[in-house]
């Protein structure tokens, strides 16, 4: 099962390597990992997407909690939450494909944020499936480059992750 684990961690040098090291040392899988400071600059928030059985995810949560720098850990996917990922796609945009690309970006509520004579950079946000769907919808041979941030997520309503 796919899980989204949110971590509040002291914003110290080396904090990221402690988390990444834990995953590699114990053979846990990381689909994606994002990290940035929160509104309180002494804390960072990390979102890790991992795939594993319930037992493994339980161990991951426990092991993360054991790290001295980790303040809080929640498995967002245990309850209602929203998740988003940002993707930038550079596509070939010439001839009649130029118009087609613009139309696809609009359908997926993307923005074109860079334009040259022969290419666009399209910015898209959404959950992982939506971004995948976009890539499937356009002609693969037109994709020049893609970059994705990995998932970040937040609990719905009263579910709040704070110190």
């Amino acid at each position: 099962m796919r899980h989204i684990i949110s971590i509040l961690i002291e914003n110290e040098a080396g904090a990221l390597s402690r988390v990444a090291g834990l995953f590699s040392a114990r053979g846990y899988n990381i689909e994606s990992l994002t990290v940035a400071p929160t509104e309180d600059p002494s804390l960072s928030r990390m979102t890790i997407v991992s795939i594993g059985s319930d037992d493994i995810i339980e161990q991951i949560t426990k092991q993360l909690n054991k790290l001295i720098d980790v303040v809080k850990v929640v498995d967002l996917s245990e309850a209602a939450h929203v998740e988003r990922e940002l993707m930038l796609v550079k596509v070939r945009a010439t001839g009649k494909e130029r118009e087609e690309m613009k139309r696809m970006a609009d359908i997926f509520r993307g923005h074109i944020i860079d334009v040259t004579e022969s290419s666009y950079v399209i910015e898209l946000t959404g959950d992982t499936r939506k971004l995948d769907a976009f890539l499937d919808a356009i002609d693969r041979s037109l994709i020049l480059e893609t970059v994705r941030t990995g998932v970040c997520g937040i609990g719905r309503g009263d579910r709040i992750l704070k110190v």
Binding site: A13, G14, S17, R18, G21, A25, I68, D69
Partner: peptide, 14 residues
């Protein structure tokens, strides 16, 4: 040192 010992200490500091 912090990198080498990270997986075999409870915690470490530089």
């Amino acid at each position: 040192t912090v990198g080498i010992t990270r997986p075999c200490v409870k915690h470490n500091f530089l």
